[in-house]
Design a protein around this nucleic acid. Sequence first.
DNA 1: AGAGCTAAGTTTGACATTTGAACTCAAGTG
DNA 2: CACTTGAGTTCAAATGTCAAACTTAGCTCT
Lengths: 147, 147
Amino acid sequence: MNRTSPVKLDDCGLVKAAEILGDKWVLMILREVFYGVVRFDDIRNEIAIPRAILADRLKKLVEFQILRKRAYQEPGSRKRFAYQLDVAGMELVKVMLATMEWGDRFLRNQPSKAVFFDQHTGEPAEIKLVNQAGAELSLADLQVKLN
Amino acid sequence: MNRTSPVKLDDCGLVKAAEILGDKWVLMILREVFYGVVRFDDIRNEIAIPRAILADRLKKLVEFQILRKRAYQEPGSRKRFAYQLDVAGMELVKVMLATMEWGDRFLRNQPSKAVFFDQHTGEPAEIKLVNQAGAELSLADLQVKLN
DNA sequence: AGAGCTAAGTTTGACATTTGAACTCAAGTG
DNA sequence: CACTTGAGTTCAAATGTCAAACTTAGCTCT
């Protein structure tokens, strides 16, 4: 039982992350982009998000270099825009997969419809909390140290 | 470039998770609880959340069995309530740590103030995306299969 | 060249949520 | 018994969200 947390809000990555990722539309947009749905109207059709909100959130995601906006042209079609994963976006893969797994397990109570594999070996890929030896840990095994 | 995602919204754990975790206050409340700050007014002092919002979010978190509300009594003090992690809440550890790491790296651009260790061996604990052999994978190594 | 279509937005005004401040209420304490 | 404290509720004002209508630029068709 602590009365205060050991890390100040300004020094906490989770707090900073919450300002962007703590929004249901942001998470749903990112889901689409991870699945390769990258155009304004395609995203809108998928998740039924209001246009103004989608425009606003995409702008934010681009600002934070989670997505980048690129013009592209399909053969025989006019120029359009695609919102692709930028560096910070690609590195969200662990957050996204951990969240998806948790949601499947505790909110859907069903095995995930989408399973991810190492495309080189064909083995299933997993998110794990491990020590240096590779042994899996749970919350109770952890200890915090401060820098 | 896909026009639609391979998984329907209703079948997606991430979409369900977004309905709860897609809220900045929920993430900040959970941060506090993970750090052992578990009382209404203590949480409020830490993160400056409006009372009405805190009451509302705690209620939701209890409904979804992420937290549970317990009366307890400190010696020489009156009865109070604590919001502790429930089953689904403990299993959020990977989501929380992955999010914290990402925030430290891409939004703070600094090493995390809090580092987590395996308390049995003293080794640092890490969140990893791995194949069955334990080799680390990145987004580009992944392939999706559908159930 | 002009009319029409389409992707990607912006604007609008109604509706819902959030906010900070004030209030409540029950259980101890001096 | 008056006072404090933890854990909320209630309230009006500010802010955010929504669906529908509008805008704009670049093709395409004739």
